[in-house]
Design a protein around this nucleic acid. Structure first.
Lengths: 94, 94
DNA sequence: CAATGTTACGATACACGTAATCATA
DNA sequence: TATGATTACGTGTATCGTAACATTG
């Protein structure tokens, strides 16, 4: 089952068009990114990034997926921000 | 960092208003649900569910968060479905 | 041959289940 | 006291980093 972590990693790679720079941006090593992107492509059954040695470009599916990923992450952030706004009470500490 | 897994679990609990039934619906045990909901409330800094022994009801923040969670999960599903639609090629198998 | 990406692999973290405890109807 | 929620704890998986390898510009 796909998770936001995967969305976030794909967004970084797709926007940077570079595993190296995406890794820097995410403050992590490159290898796990390769694995994550492959996982996503496997799960979607669709190639998202055209690679030679370096990244070439996004496939059409990759471009669509990038936009939808951004919407999803933004919506998730909205959820987190919206809830506390409707103030009620702090969670019971114990 | 919050994940879809937590959103999905909260949705089940919030809609069922019962950890027990939510666990059944998610095909998992109850205890992890308690932990997840506490994690979310901790992360949001907001109480989402009013509990006595059993669940009483959602707080206002809980109701808002439930709607935003559902939007988020729906958007995530849209992302997964949308990408392959813009056909291109299956991921390299080899 | 320098820079980038991938594969392999070991270590750590974390999500889950089981068991035991608590609370209330 | 029976049902449902929480706490405590052990275990398996998954995510990550390091290292070795491959590729291409």
């Amino acid at each position: 089952m796909i998770e936001l972590r995967q969305f976030r990693q794909f967004i970084a790679v797709a926007e940077e068009l570079s595993f190296r720079r995406a890794a820097d941006r995410l403050h992590m090593a490159q290898p796990p990114l390769t694995v994550t992107i492959k996982q996503i492509e496997e799960e979607l059954g669709t190639l998202l990034i055209e690679r030679t040695n370096r990244i070439a470009r996004l496939t059409p599916a990759g471009r669509v997926f990038l936009e939808e990923c951004k919407r999803t992450v933004m919506q998730a952030e909205r959820a987190v921000l919206a809830a506390p706004f409707s103030r009620h009470a702090a969670p019971a500490r114990d």
